[in-house]
């Protein structure tokens, strides 16, 4: 099933490239490596996603999250819940600010750098976005989107500079953020504990390599009169392709997983509002939303854990009850 889903996604992306580039008319053959890697990326990400959501807990929350998302009742009672969660968790990542200001700033730099690069690169390599010079000598350029003529601009104006250096700006943002994360990987005990090269370092090295080789392309055309440009273009493509095909298998997959936090948030808020809170069986203190406890018990039963009823007791009471049982039946101690 995951293979079929991955295959469908890859074919869909290939068809979208063909259609969006108007039968490859606007497709830039020099960028074929990037486009091919994206087709593989679509397969890999979809395959991994399908495997991920086949596990009981993930499958249940995927379903509950979408149910909460499409619920008209939730929309009426919590109209701002979805946009606030999307902006807060996915855009500005406020939870990272709570984990540390440095981490938050660095992650925001990497995040917006990658978003900017993605918005430029993917349409460009798909042939959905194309630039054509108005005259043989410039400086006027016209942007074609999905084969349709849109705006024209002067390449030597500020707008022109921004358009042609968008990826350079993205690279600087990414390098600044990655620098902080790399420093942390070498110096911070929290980060160094249990870190793995393939999982923790490789993604950072990949982003740095993409950014540096990308900036070197600009450096070559700006100051070296295009020397080594061909080699740098291939080196840059190699770093991008390697990183793209790595996304489904390593740390970058958290980008695909993170939207689940929005689903869980709106599901829990809506469940709390609809059914109320489940009190701890022992102390009566609020535990979680009733639907949450019920769903967790179902997940535990599916996993054959055998103590799902225990989920109705709060963590502190579980510990106290175990302590009481130990001191009553195993060893009396200081009582």
């Amino acid at each position: 099933m995951p293979s079929v889903a991955g295959g469908i996604a890859a074919v869909a992306v290939a068809l979208a490239i063909y259609a969006g580039s108007r039968g490859l008319r606007y497709f830039d053959a020099a960028l074929v490596g990037y486009a091919t890697a994206t087709v593989f990326l679509a397969f890999g990400v979809t395959y991994r996603y399908a495997v991920w959501v086949s596990a009981p807990a993930a499958r249940r929350y995927l379903l509950r999250g979408w149910q909460a998302f499409f619920s008209w009742r939730n929309f009426r009672s919590l109209p701002t819940a979805v946009p606030r969660s999307v902006l807060g968790y996915l855009g500005f990542q406020t939870f990272l600010r709570a984990r540390g200001r440095g981490r938050w700033i660095a992650h925001q730099l990497v995040f917006w750098g990658v978003v900017l690069a993605t918005l430029i690169t993917f349409p460009l390599t798909f042939g959905w976005l194309a630039f054509f010079s108005d005259t043989a000598s410039g400086p006027g350029y016209t942007i074609y989107v999905l084969g349709f003529r849109t705006v024209s601009f002067d390449a030597l104006s500020l707008v022109g500079w921004m358009v042609f250096h968008g990826l350079d700006i993205a690279a600087v943002l990414v390098l600044a953020g990655c620098g902080w994360f790399l420093w942390r990987r070498f110096r911070h005990r929290e980060a160094t504990t249990g870190q793995r090269f393939g999982y923790d370092f490789f993604p950072l090295i990949g982003l740095v390599a993409i950014s540096v080789t990308g900036l070197l392309l600009t450096f070559s055309s700006w100051l070296l009169e295009g020397r080594s440009y061909d080699f740098l273009a291939i080196a840059h493509m190699a770093t991008v392709v390697l990183t793209l095909v790595f996304i489904p298998f390593g740390k970058f997959f958290h980008v695909i997983q993170r939207p689940a936090s929005v689903g869980v948030e709106i599901y829990k808020r809506a469940a709390l509002e609809r059914d109320g809170v489940f009190p701890c069986r022992r102390c009566g203190e609020p535990l979680e939303a009733k639907a949450f406890v019920s769903d967790l018990k179902q997940t535990m039963d599916e996993l054959e854990l055998g103590f799902s009823e225990w989920a109705e007791t709060c963590p502190r009471c579980k510990r106290v009850l175990r302590g009481q049982a130990y001191l009553d039946t195993v060893k009396r101690g200081f009582r």
């Binding site: 709570a98 689940a260 510990r319």
Partner: peptide
């Protein structure tokens, strides 16, 4: 894992020993 945890709290309520804690602000 910090990059993966979505702060749902499943682990907190499923642990038979009552061990995990959830920092709601950090979603971790």
């Amino acid at each position: 894992a910090k990059e993966r945890c979505i702060g749902c709290g499943n682990c907190v309520d499923a642990c038979p020993f009552g061990v995990p804690k959830l920092d709601v602000a950090e979603m971790l």
